[in-house]
């Protein structure tokens, strides 16, 4: 799949933003006043910034309001509703903490649930696609949730929780790579099944339907970036998990905490780039490509 910057930024920052909103929502002793303002500002910048970035890949963003209508069948529609619901509820909850010094806990719990639902529905947009066998697997929602909650814990300064969740997220990511590398083959979809000609003999793409490129090849067949996948996986593990975990273990102050957060974000950006660049869409088979 084409690793579009808009969706990489969207999944990375929205995941972190909603993760932070989750922890703010369930915090029994939530911050108030200016401290709360800073936490909520960071969470909203990330969550809303990510959502805005995601509209950049729309052909007609001016019609985006229509995307809230099809929640019965569409995970993308459900995600939009969950995101807006969460942002509205948490805005009320945040206003209570910032301006009134009052913690309206039930609102926080509802918002936390909404944040989880948003991240889960985002992950299901990818998980539902049978056409991308690497994504069509339980590791996709598990990874999105673990990263969001782990990153959110890191942002909200929960050392022990962040430590545990980042370890979990790293384990899930390694599992996702391990299973993911054989998913296309295991899916049973091949050039033979795509053409129905496998019964005659070995099928080979002889000539593409056009001399140039097309939308399908640009969107679904990304080959160039895969060449450095192994190195990028190591960089991901190092930046997203190893560095923040080491900092959390060694003890945190404001400077090292910032370092841990920056390293984690850089690592997750790298991870998401791989998430898209390494995903093979079955339509590539028709072109003799992956």
């Amino acid at each position: 799949m084409h690793p579009a910057p808009s969706v990489i930024i969207f999944t990375t920052f929205s995941g972190l933003g909603f993760g932070l909103l989750f922890w703010l929502g369930i915090d029994a002793t939530a911050p108030t006043g200016w401290v709360a303002f800073v936490f909520f500002a960071i969470a909203y910048l990330m969550a809303v910034g990510g959502l805005v970035a995601s509209t950049f890949h729309l052909g007609h963003p001016e019609r985006a309001i229509k995307a809230f209508s099809q929640w019965r069948s569409s995970w993308l529609s459900r995600e939009g509703i969950a995101a807006v619901f969460t942002l509205l509820i948490m805005a009320l909850y945040g206003a209570g903490l910032v301006f009134f010094g009052a913690q309206w806990s039930p609102l926080g719990w509802l918002g936390a649930l909404g944040a989880l639902a948003t991240v889960f529905t985002t992950s299901m947009i990818y998980t539902q696609l049978k056409t991308v066998p690497r994504w069509h697997h339980w590791t996709t929602p598990a990874l999105f949730l673990a990263l969001s909650l782990g990153g959110g814990a890191l942002l909200s300064g929960r050392v022990t929780v962040a430590l545990v969740l980042l370890l979990v997220a790293a384990a899930v990511q390694i599992a996702a790579w391990y299973f993911g590398d054989t998913r296309l083959k295991a899916s049973g979809t091949s050039l033979a099944s795509a053409t129905g000609l496998g019964g005659i003999g070995e099928v080979r793409a002889f000539e593409p339907p056009h001399t140039g490129t097309n939308y399908l090849l640009k969107e679904f067949v990304h080959v160039v970036g895969r060449k450095h996948a192994t190195q990028l996986r190591l960089i991901t593990l190092l930046l997203a998990f190893a560095v923040p975990i080491a900092i959390l273990l060694l003890g945190v102050n404001h400077i090292t905490a910032l370092l841990a957060v920056v390293s984690h974000i850089a690592g997750v950006l790298c991870l998401r780039w791989l998430f898209f660049a390494q995903a093979e869409h079955v339509v590539g088979l028709y072109y003799g490509k992956r």
């Binding site: 052909g59 056409t131 679904f220």
Partner: peptide
């Protein structure tokens, strides 16, 4: 009504949809 999100093309295994 199409917002051009491209998700339908992602969901199609046959490459039948082009933005």
């Amino acid at each position: 009504d199409c917002i051009g999100c491209g998700l339908c093309a992602w969901a199609c295994p046959y490459g039948a949809r082009e933005l």
